[in-house]
Design a protein around this nucleic acid. Structure first.
Lengths: 215, 215
DNA sequence: CTATGTGAACAGCTTCACAGCG
DNA sequence: CGCTGTGAAGCTGTTCACATAG
């Protein structure tokens, strides 16, 4: 029983970038694209592009390249975004509101269908003045996850609460968490966490700018 | 002239995480910490922690570990966050407003000092109802960067405008860009770009959840 | 002649394992 | 002893280079 070689995580990350760029190419009416073109747009070598795609199958045509529309479809299937995902949000603070108002998710098939917060003043109110989403109390978490088959969650709560909330989400059936709290979450191996710490990102810039100025 | 070996980018990323965790340890009144403790909190091996820190100097004490306060100070120096950075924001949409209202930056020494947008209805208005920041027109960009010695920028504009705005920022002296637009920016080599694409992050979760359910 | 798919070579990061210090 | 710092080993991901297909 030979396990098909594990896919490198960096390859999966790039797959999302390929998809984004392919959609841009499609929107400029490009029919086919070569690994060289795709790579140049994203600052990736052509060999890397070909190898990444080859992990998943043979999608290209020698001498021609890749059919843009067909490859978009294939990459969507691979990423699992050829269907709609219901997503919930915990935390209706500044960041949570921004996430709830951002329309980029919906276009990509991620539908925000429920918002939760523990703060009594927020419960029952719309997430934002013109938002159709009403903030729910935390005790409705499990019921909503079940009722709407939600598997993905965005976590925009204070650092101190993040682990507790994550535990509850997982217990209720959430499988993937996009974590905006500046803490390292501890979760069982079958659960995926992806953390976005904005302060950490700025620190990276600070390091690079500092280093390039003194070097 | 021997160039001191380049620091691996992953090591620098982890440095920010070490700092975050060290501050948490300090807040629970821990005096010293071992590479093992630090690693366990962040799911990193102890050898990795020691090697990462060793890229920058000898900060530990054999048999004891690392002095928490001293190491925090050292890591801040390395990251360049032992001083205040003035930061600007371009784009006063939903995401821009959330970034402007987020207080995590300020605590870390990143001070948002100017906000720009090209939309006439937004110019002259506060970024948010209770914000002290007034949205400025794009033509004040260069002047403000100069006047406030701004080197870091956050870019929260539509994808179609991102490259044009980035070009202007760089021409005006910006050295590091935190990009929230879903495009790959092309910049000169001395400029650092760090991109946060939220839809891409959700796609990674989608992939992992899909894969773990079928595998 | 162009561009893919891929084994082989290479580079870079991580882990191991241990000498040495407190 | 406990724990750091670090060469050496191991592994993973990237690049090269070419056979092959259209």
């Amino acid at each position: 029983m030979t396990k098909p070689d594990a896919i490198p995580a960096p390859a999966v990350r790039r797959l999302s970038l390929y998809l984004r760029q392919l959609e841009a190419f499609r929107d400029s009416n490009l029919r086919t694209v070569s690994s060289k073109q795709l790579g140049e747009a994203l600052h990736i070598t052509d060999a890397q592009v070909r190898k990444d795609l080859a992990y998943f199958g043979q999608f290209g045509h020698a001498g021609i390249g890749y059919d843009v529309t067909a490859l978009i479809q294939k990459v969507r299937e691979i990423l699992g975004t050829d269907r709609v995902w219901n997503v919930l949000l915990v935390g209706a603070g500044n960041l949570g509101r921004a996430l709830g108002c951002y329309h980029g998710f919906h276009q990509k098939g991620f539908h925000l269908v429920a918002v939760f917060d523990s703060h009594p003043d927020k419960i029952g109110q719309p997430l934002a003045p013109d938002s159709p989403l009403i903030v729910r109390p935390m005790n409705q978490l499990a019921q909503q996850i079940e009722a709407q088959s939600i598997r993905l969650a965005m976590l925009a709560v204070p650092a101190a609460d993040a682990q507790t909330v994550a535990d509850r989400l997982i217990k209720a059936g959430i499988l993937g968490i996009l974590n905006f709290a500046p803490v390292s979450l501890h979760v069982p191996p079958q659960i995926t966490v992806n953390s976005v710490d904005l302060a950490v990102r700025l620190e990276q810039l600070s390091f690079n700018v500092t280093a390039s100025q003194s070097g």
